[in-house]
Design a protein around this nucleic acid. Structure first.
Lengths: 225, 225
DNA sequence: TGTACATCAGTGAACGCGCGTTCACTGATGTAC
DNA sequence: TGTACATCAGTGAACGCGCGTTCACTGATGTAC
C-alpha cells in the first residue's frame, strides 16, 4: 500500500520561510477516502464534506488543492500505483508457485475488499466526472495493460507458445477484469469466491483463444464458436 | 427504437374522471435524455433541470415520478430493451450475411453514436448512483447475456463446435463489450472503426478460447498462454 | 542570547445560488342529470 | 341540448439547506541581526 503520510517533494511546497503546515495533502486525501463507500463516489463528495471530515475549515481546502477535481486525480493516481504494486507482487509470488492467473485474480479480488477504498475509486470514476477524471483513470489502466503485456510475452516465450496480438490480449483481460470487479464491488463478501472462479475461467478463455489464434490465425475467419 | 410516445398501460393512471394530462411521462423522459451528454450522467441531473427542459414547473415533476431515481430506472429499462432490439436485428441480418460478431459489434458501435443517448445511460449508470440504479442496469445486462447465450448455443450446434460454459462465455463477451463501449463513448468519431476492429478480435479470442477449451478442457490447467 | 520582523497556514463570516419539497391554489375538462 | 358539479393536472410562491468561493483577518513559526 502506498503510504498516505510520506511527503511528496514534487507537491509539497518548500516553505522556505514562514509557518510549517499542520495540515497535509495526505490528511485531506485520507479524509476523502474515509468518506467513500458503496454509495459514495469521489464525484459525489463535496468540498465542504471533505473539509469537515478532515477537521479543517472549508476554505483551508484550497491550500492543498485547486479544486475537487485535483483531489480526485490525486486519488486516482494513488489508487493505480497501489494496485499495480499489489498485482506485481502477486505475480512474483505466483511465478514460484503455480497459477499466475488465479494468483493475480485473487489478489485483485482481495484488494477489492481491503479497507482502503483505493481500488473502488479506479473502478468507479472511469465513467463519470470530468475529462480530467476519466483521463486519469485511463492512464492507470494503460499502465496496467503494459505491465500485463510484458508479463504475457515473457511467459509465452518461456512456455514456447504464441500470442496473437499481445497488446490486444492484455487490453481485453484488463478491461474484463475491471468490469467484473466493478460488479463485485457491490456484492456481499460470500459471493466473491464464485465470482473469482468465473473470472479465472474467463481470463483463461482469452488466453486459450490468443494462443490458438497464434497457432492458427485462420480460425479468426471462422466466425463462430 | 422504443417509441417515446406510446402509452404504457401499466404506468399511466386510468384517470376515470377529471382532466386529461397534457404532460406525459414520456415528455419528461425525453427532456432528461436531451440533457444527457458526454459530461452529464443521469445521476448528475437535477429535478429542476429536467423540469425546466420539459417546460413544466418543478413540482409538476412529481405527477409523473416519485423522484429522480424512478425516472432513472425508467431510462435504464428503456435503454436496455432498445439496445437488445437493435442487436437482435443486427444478428438476424448478419446470419444471412457473413460475420455475426462483426455485425453485432458494429451495430453496437453505431448505436453508441446515435442521437438518442440511450446506450450511454446503460454504460454509465452501472457504477454510480443508488442501488436501484445499479440493479436496473444489471438486470438489463443479464437479459443481454441470456439472449447472447441462446445465440451462441444455437450457432455452436449449427457449426458442430463445442462451447465451454456457454453462460460464462456470454457473460465475458457482454461485460467486455460494455466496458470497451464505455471507453468508446468519449472518443472522437474517427477513432471508432479502429476500436470496433479491436473489439471484434477480442470477442473472437474469447470464442476461439471457449471452443478450444470445449475440445480439450485440460488446456484450462495449463496456466499460461 | 534576545529582539524585531516577515511569512503564510489556517480561520470565521458572509455572499449568492440552485436545490428538493411543501402548500394552497386555479381553472380546464369530464360526468351526471 | 344545457347546467351544475366533481376531478385533478399543473402552478406560483415560499421554505430551509448545503454548496463553492471570497474576503479580510490572526497569530504561530521561522529568519535576520
Amino acid at each position: 500500500m502506498t503510504s498516505l503520510t510520506s511527503p511528496d517533494p514534487l507537491t509539497t511546497t518548500p516553505s522556505a520561510a514562514g509557518r510549517k503546515p499542520v495540515i497535509s495533502r495526505d490528511d485531506v486525501i485520507a479524509a476523502a477516502i474515509k468518506l467513500l463507500g458503496p454509495h459514495r463516489s469521489v464525484s459525489s463528495l463535496s468540498l465542504r464534506e471533505v473539509a469537515r471530515e478532515a477537521g479543517i475549515a472549508p476554505n483551508s481546502f484550497y491550500r492543498q488543492f485547486r479544486d475537487m477535481d485535483e483531489l480526485a486525480v490525486a486519488l486516482i493516481e494513488m489508487a493505480g500505483s497501489s494496485l499495480r504494486q499489489i498485482i506485481g507482487e502477486a505475480r512474483q509470488r505466483a511465478r514460484t508457485n503455480r497459477s499466475v492467473v488465479r494468483g493475480s485474480v485473487e489478489a485483485f479480488m482481495a484488494q477489492l475488499r481491503s479497507d482502503d477504498r483505493l481500488l473502488h475509486i479506479l473502478l468507479r470514476e472511469g465513467t463519470v466526472g470530468s475529462d480530467a477524471f476519466k483521463q486519469a483513470v485511463d492512464r492507470q489502466l494503460n499502465f496496467f495493460e503494459e505491465e500485463l503485456q510484458r508479463d504475457l510475452i515473457r511467459l509465452a516465450a518461456a512456455n514456447r507458445t504464441g500470442l496473437y496480438e499481445p497488446a490486444l490480449t492484455a487490453k481485453a483481460i484488463t478491461r474484463l477484469v475491471f468490469a467484473m470487479g466493478a460488479t463485485a464491488m457491490d456484492l456481499p463478501a460470500d459471493k466473491l469466491p464464485e465470482l473469482s472462479e468465473q473470472l479465472v475461467v474467463m481470463v483463461r478463455m482469452i488466453l486459450t483463444g490468443t494462443r490458438a489464434l497464434a497457432a492458427n490465425p485462420r480460425e479468426l475467419q471462422a466466425d463462430l464458436p
